[in-house]
């Protein structure tokens, strides 16, 4: 596979130059979270918190305030960031940092997650001209349009010069 072929594998509309601070994006897809994948994800990451995988125990957990197992918050973050990725980070070269992530509402098996984003910053780098930094705020919402998570992600994103030859 030649270099010429590789740049056609990702979008041509989502290089650093295509984003402006203040741009807002409603990401197209949604994602229903199932109980079994939440259990799998929790256990495969060695997370031993039983509210994610013991339905029986949830009847008494925190006074019985939750109707079902809790979806692992780490999994919620990953699904929401995933929903933003084709639009914003498909041409990223590296996934650098995250901050200000806040878990706002509990997620339970059967809930459906959606995502929207706002571009917060684009920045040139001193040591390279073919890529720069992009920082955006992601927000995940559920099927009732309640926000479940917000956070910021900073990526190293190609400029057009990266793939022009």
């Amino acid at each position: 596979m030649g270099v010429q072929n590789l740049s056609i594998l990702t979008g041509s509309h989502n290089y650093l130059e295509d984003f402006n601070v203040g741009d807002k994006i409603s990401h197209r897809r949604g994602r229903t979270v199932d109980a079994s994948e939440n259990t799998y994800f929790t256990l495969t990451t060695l997370n031993t918190a039983s509210p994610h995988f013991n339905k029986h125990e949830m009847e008494t957990y925190m006074g019985g305030r939750f109707p079902e197992r809790l979806v692992n918050g780490g999994f919620t973050i990953c699904v929401v960031v995933g929903l933003t990725t084709q639009d914003i980070a498909e041409n990223a070269i590296d996934d650098l940092s995250y901050t200000n992530i806040r878990m706002l509402t509990s997620v339970h098996p059967g809930d459906t997650l959606y995502a929207n984003s706002e571009i917060l910053e684009t920045r040139d780098l001193e040591d390279r001209t073919d890529a720069g930094l992009l920082r955006y705020r992601f927000e995940g919402t559920n099927q009732r349009d309640e926000p479940v998570v917000r956070g910021e992600r900073t990526i190293l994103l190609k400029k057009r010069a990266f793939d022009s030859f």
Partner: peptide
């Protein structure tokens, strides 16, 4: 037991 509230300053 106890809810997960947030993540800050995550650097890869």
């Amino acid at each position: 037991g106890g809810l997960f509230l947030g993540i800050d300053r995550l650097n890869n």
